[in-house]
Amino acid sequence: QISGEGGPIRVNADTSEVMERQRQVVLIDNVDIMQGNARLRADKVTIYYGGTGATQTAGMSGFGDIESMVAEGEVFYVTPDLKATGDVGTYDAKADTITLTGEVVLVRGEDVATGRRLVMRLEEGRTTLDGGDGQVQFNISPNERPAGEAPAEDASN
């Protein structure tokens, strides 16, 4: 799951390849994975299934739970609270984390942060941004409004 609240995952992409033996599904071009109010987009996503577990994936049987996902090329991860972009994104089910590396930009409310490596622990709601050998830069607007409370726009879902 790519959202802290779990729920059904809807996936679509221009083309997808299923590789039964490796229990992998490769999605290419305009890959858009949604779960609850979280969304992952990239040019190419490879999903690895563990083969066990109760997850039912439409059209594919016996794949079991998603073990991990690797997204490459213009990776976007958007939740109501934040929006993160990077060159490569990996989701690790066991660790329940999403990691973005490369030119990472994190936007929360009006704050913008850049770094080299972003680790989001979804359940715990803790996002760590690391500067790699360089430094992390946060660009915060000091108004007192708590993040997430966006300027007047209608709710989308």
């Binding site: 994190l106 929360r108 770094g115 760590t128 941004l129 660009n139 915060i140």
Partner: peptide, 13 residues
């Protein structure tokens, strides 16, 4: 705006 630089940072949602 406040510009913040650090070796690393984390956000507690």
């Amino acid at each position: 705006r406040v510009i913040l630089d650090a070796d690393n940072a984390y956000v507690l949602e």
